[in-house]
Write a protein that binds this DNA or RNA. Structure first.
Lengths: 252, 252
DNA sequence: GATCATAGTCGTCTGCCTGACGATAAACAC
DNA sequence: GTGTTTATCGTCAGGCAGACGACTATGATC
């Protein structure tokens, strides 16, 4: 069909964020409470409209900074610490997903080290880190449990997709280090895997695997005893981004 | 910020398709020649506007049918043959990507068995299957070679992302069978892997791997000699979608 | 200070999978 | 029949992962 500027319907385009972190041995996501209809009072993923001159990645980084204060880790400037990993997740465009109008949401996935309490921003009257299994209960994506209202819109689906992406991506990439502070121990990294996968890993085999993968971990020379027990070596994330062979996720 | 219907800029939303197939031992993508500005006369990926009441996946399936006649393989109705695999790839929303207006494109990846010559549809004055390396030359995503005009818009980038997705996904899933006709031999499946990865695989180890993976291949009982040589067993794709352990892509 | 609990680190062993490659089988071309 | 092509089965060595023993170094408790 020939080009006709009036032939296409207008859409609103938003970015929604699945921000994951590991707190107290469990995988948590950032949720904001909606301060207005629709879904007023319900929990939702942070997000907002893409602005006129703005790229999708820019919009996601801006929203992330507004909600958490996190700066996106720029591979060109690795000196910047506390930078989070941010990547595009998927796009959700069901015509019925927002009752107000036709909204297409480009969801992004952010991985961050454990942070202090989030600050609520924008139209959210509250914000919190919630265990993902708790957020996904009552939504068909988790085990039934406490009577918690499901996430607004299709955000449970988006969160489930983001969690699944994170779970599979730490298998074959060094992304698990994005959940850790700049310096961390092998045990802390192992607890990240255990929290994200909800499994127990053998500390000895895990240690052999991560220290034996070239470029994954770089020793800093320091040690720490913050976990109790024998002091552990401190590491930084090495340059390698792909793990080959991958870390194997145990069968359930 | 409070909700204000006038606070967001309007976008056009399109779907673009990376349709891949294997022809004559090389990975090919569907390209359409643009019949109008911008980029008039240049090759581009097929695609079009998402309609008002249409889901993104519906729009992609509709465009695919318009351009190729392919029906999307519905897992709920596996009896339908010649069904292609279709999945969302990524979304591209650079403000400058379309000089006419602000367009966000939700790219999809389709994998199809070898097809007869494509039919040009919509505003395309021509359509063809072109080897991906040829389409990616001159675009910074392939080796320099013949003087071929690069793809329109950011379609070279989209194609490169789609090809990379296909290359990595056949490692750990049974998706390579989507490139094959309903019944195929181990050798034909091997040539799919060889074409997509541009490598040579050992026929004996490949045979051991695919026949030894439960649920990957189901023998139909028939044999064929369409490749010459000793008759080969015919298989259908089994129910397994994930390959565990994965097929290993040889180092370059 | 001895003992215990906790966590980290190094080794060993076994089984599975892969890559390399030899050998055989069944068709077709001449 | 001989040669060529493709399919299929087998063998062997190396690498890696899971299971698990052993030892080390700290803090807590008695």
């Amino acid at each position: 069909m020939p080009y006709d500027p009036s032939a296409f319907p207008p859409f609103a385009v938003t970015v929604d964020l699945v921000v994951l972190t590991v707190r107290r041995h469990s995988l948590c996501a950032l949720a904001v409470r909606r301060g207005e209809p629709p879904f007023q009072g319900r929990w939702a993923l942070p997000g907002g409209f893409v602005r006129a001159g703005e790229d999708l990645a820019q919009a996601a980084a801006r929203e992330l900074a507004e909600e958490t204060g996190l700066c996106v880790h720029d591979p060109a400037a690795p000196s910047q610490d506390n930078g989070a990993h941010l990547e595009q997740l998927a796009t959700y465009g069901d015509p019925e997903r927002d009752p107000r109008m036709r909204v297409v949401s480009v969801a992004h996935l952010a991985l961050a080290p454990d942070l202090p309490a989030p600050r609520a921003g924008g139209d959210a009257s509250n914000a919190r880190w919630a265990p993902v299994e708790e957020l996904l209960e009552q939504s068909g994506y988790g085990r039934p449990g406490e009577a918690v209202a499901p996430l607004a819109f299709d955000h449970a689906r988006i969160l489930a997709d983001g969690v699944e992406r994170a779970r599979s991506k730490i298998e074959y990439s060094s992304l698990a280090t994005a959940f850790c502070p700049p310096e961390f121990t092998v045990g802390e990294l192992r607890r990240v895997y255990e929290a994200v996968w909800s499994v127990a890993l053998d500390p000895r085999n895990f240690h052999r695997k991560v220290t034996g993968t070239p470029g994954f971990l770089v020793p800093t020379g320091g040690t720490t005893t913050r976990q109790g027990g024998r002091p552990a070596q401190l590491f930084r994330a090495g340059g390698a981004t792909l793990l080959n062979p991958p870390m194997l996720r145990p069968e359930v």
